[in-house]
Design a protein around this nucleic acid. Sequence first.
DNA 1: ACATGTGAAGGCTTTCACAGCA
DNA 2: TGCTGTGAAAGCCTTCACATGT
Lengths: 238, 238
Amino acid sequence: MTATRPEPTTSAAEAVGLREVVEIRRTMPPASVERLPGYLRVLTDLAARGVTSASSQQLAELAGVGPAQLRKDLSHLGSHGRRGVGYDVDTLRERVQSALGLVVELRVAIVGAGNLGHALANYSGFGARGFTVAALLDSNLALVGTEVAGVVVEDVARLADVVRDLDVSIVVIATPGEHAQEVCDVVVAAGVREILNFAPRALQVPDDVELRSVDLGSELQILAFHSRERSGREAAGL
Amino acid sequence: MTATRPEPTTSAAEAVGLREVVEIRRTMPPASVERLPGYLRVLTDLAARGVTSASSQQLAELAGVGPAQLRKDLSHLGSHGRRGVGYDVDTLRERVQSALGLVVELRVAIVGAGNLGHALANYSGFGARGFTVAALLDSNLALVGTEVAGVVVEDVARLADVVRDLDVSIVVIATPGEHAQEVCDVVVAAGVREILNFAPRALQVPDDVELRSVDLGSELQILAFHSRERSGREAAGL
DNA sequence: ACATGTGAAGGCTTTCACAGCA
DNA sequence: TGCTGTGAAAGCCTTCACATGT
């Protein structure tokens, strides 16, 4: 995974006019934010299995992190555990969910109805995790009008309209690399501030836009590095 | 993106018997390794456009990082730039490529021939980046025998055979979350040491296995966090 | 007893700023 | 002069260890 963290610690509290406000805006470290979805997944699983309470040790094991790290991460959300006992699964799940802003269903538009766009639109985990695929757009007019996963493909030229009319807050870019930057520019111009990019390009966005990028090729290459490292080690040592 | 870095700095040199060996094994920091694919992409683009030389400033801009960071990252590969001039694009490209172990085509197997597996198998960027989809496997016998992207789908029960016979070095898990851990266990037992997981689960692997995980839902949830943060800021400040 | 919440320590990463070389 | 390569500084993040509370 590749992520962008442009702002060098923009204090949220500073942007707020009132300083002596009651609710202290606890600003969570980016590294902790990235682990919250993992905790939410574990908590949802446990809740579904009827488990009502769990220790940091148990939760950490399921999430694949250390117990101390999990406790520190959760401490940024305030104290919700009970000493000597552990955490109440349901309470904590709700707290994490609300911290992630998943109280309302967020609406997502996918640009690019090729292989990947298709797969993403059909991805069942979407709804289960609080998101709705509100629109699917493509520049290929042969695809426009066809239906994918219950959504009619729109012309990418209508993107600004779609974003406004359907109240889209997150756009997923699943186009070929060549068109990714131009699509990205249009998306930003349409007022979208959260973008997830699957195209193999480093996209340029203004500072106030949150961009995350996932590139399959890069992931494989990182694994390839370790593979080579390993084979070198084995050849020399073993 | 979620990544695992289990080993608390396992010294590669330590695993090697010889200490006074000629080739000092330069151990590259994990954070630098993660950026190498991005640099390689930029260098390949420039080479294709006929550019022969570039400064750290230019390369960094295209890769979306700072110039100092790029220089430091590249310094782990040895000195390949020319002071006062910049880097030779082609030389550097080859150096990065070889550092990533992309001198030979690496063979990949994809487990799970559903929506995502399908899309991954058809992903054209595969070959262009030095990887071959050698096999596609699924547990659904209705899919076994059908052809996807020029590859015949095999029964997942034959995984160990496939890995051995086709010399697979990387396995991509694209199954539903429920089956991901059992598939993972089989993959590890088959001797594979590099795994890319797309299933929404934290998988448990031995220390000597390199596991990287990409979870669409988590990426969206991280964006949702920033979306909420932003709306709170606007409501309060503006 | 037991497990959380958290200062403090230690490790890693990024950024700075300049020496060194073409 | 211009740009690389790199020690040193600054900033993050993780881990430790224990005080705190039940």
